[in-house]
Amino acid sequence: MSAQEQILTHARLVLDDETIDGTLVIRDGRIAAIDHGASQSAGAIDCEGDLVLPGLVELHTDNMEKYFQPRPKVEWPSLQAALAHDAQMAASGITTVFDAVSVGDVDEQSMRHGALDEMCHALSRIARDGLARVDHRLHLRCEVSHPNTLARFEELSSSPLLGLVSLMDHAPGQRQFASLEAYRIYYQGKYKLDDAAMNAFMASQIDNSQRYSAEHRRAIAAICRERGLAIASHDDATVEHVAESHEYGTRVAEFPTTREAAEASHRAGMAVMMGAPNVVRGGSHSGNIAAAELVELGVLDILSSDYYPAALLDAVFRVAAMENGYALPRAVATATRIPAEAVGLLDRGRLAPGLRADLLRVRLADDHPILRRVWAAGQQVH
């Protein structure tokens, strides 16, 4: 066994359609071989019957923002913030992450405006200089109702890290916040506004949506199609929303809020993404459709950790354990193969010879997954 070769044996390997007892060989950062049975090599790593599955592929997490602003009005040095976030990704089993940064925001005072360039630059630096444990890509979350979103998107769209663009509109009265009362409760509590200020805030958001959303949505989608960038919809609630998203060439339906929208997205060939926290908590914190219901219908395609990285691996095994859930290989695919394919990354997300050796070693304790080892491109990173 060479210095560039590792052998994992006595492992339960989660393949595309089955789980086998076998051995996996890593060579030069790639999966070199998969065999049934145990290896007799003296240097093989004994996995003691643990599961080995592909590294998780995360398409939508705003977790990095928490490191850049750990408390209100507290800004953290960008390199340290990016590396701390990177470490948490590795510790959560996420070996490919599309870091979601917001272009435009409902809050004009949000740190997202000022930190946007810093976050993009920090990601580029840790990727360029080989400082990152895992593979970082960029996901631009475009708040299409914001006046400056199109101009800022055009400035950032040439980044070589950019691989996914989502089109969002968080204005009250539609999509995620069809309920005006739910919108009021969420944002009034978040920004500590009195009733008069809240009424003015809502009126401003509705006006901006009416003025800018349709134009920005069309223009950004056209740029993405021209450059071959994957498009994600966000919070589609109706069949009409889904039809519009499909017309723009959308590949991923992020967090549809209703059964109607989720089923329509799935039928249209868009990969339906739901939040792993929705699975772990047993429902949506916004009162929208529960991910478990979409699992029962067979239309949940992708899981995302969203705001809680450790939820992703946990949710995979919860989906596999549901009474009407998915078999383990299909459940694993919701956080590995399917998100990778949705954004055109065909070199990862599966256990197969020739693919990147992004791997997790997992042991179950009372049906809860315990992450024991993480490899990214063949290097142990956790």
Rank of each mutant, 00 (worst) to 15 (best):
E240P: 01
D314Q: 15
A333N: 07
N208E: 07
A42G: 14
W375S: 06
D50E: 12
A42I: 09
L123E: 04
V97F: 00
L138S: 01
L297R: 15
P160N: 12
H246L: 03
L162C: 01
A32Y: 08
L15R: 10
D367I: 00
R373A: 13
L150T: 03
E247N: 11
G93I: 11
P70T: 10
R330Y: 09
R125S: 09
R218L: 10
H60F: 08
R184H: 07
G282V: 11
L351V: 12
Y187C: 06
S265E: 08
V52F: 09
T149M: 07
A264Y: 01
H139V: 06
Q6H: 11
A115P: 00
R12F: 10
G325I: 13
Y186H: 15
L79K: 14
L59W: 03
G43S: 15
S159A: 11
A268V: 05
L180S: 08
A243V: 07
A237F: 00
V74C: 13
R218K: 13
G43C: 13
N288C: 10
A81H: 05
T61R: 01
G298K: 07
D367E: 13
E244Y: 02
Q80P: 00
D169I: 02
A90H: 01
V280P: 06
A264C: 07
Y191M: 15
H139E: 08
L162S: 02
Y191K: 14
T238S: 15
R356C: 11
R211Q: 14
P353A: 14
S41Y: 09
C142I: 05
G283W: 12
E108S: 13
V239W: 02
P172C: 10
L79E: 14
Q69H: 10
R337A: 13
K73I: 03
G43Q: 15
A203M: 10
A115I: 04
H241C: 03
A292I: 03
F98Q: 00
G298Y: 12
S209V: 08
H113G: 06
A219M: 08
N208F: 02
I302Q: 03
D17G: 12
S158I: 02
A333S: 15
I31H: 09
V362W: 04
A122L: 07
V103W: 00
V279M: 15
A342Y: 00
T9R: 08
A87P: 02
R211Y: 03
L150M: 05
N278V: 05
R217Y: 09
H121A: 15
E226F: 02
T23H: 06
Y308H: 15
G189K: 12
R330W: 11
T334V: 04
A42P: 07
G130D: 04
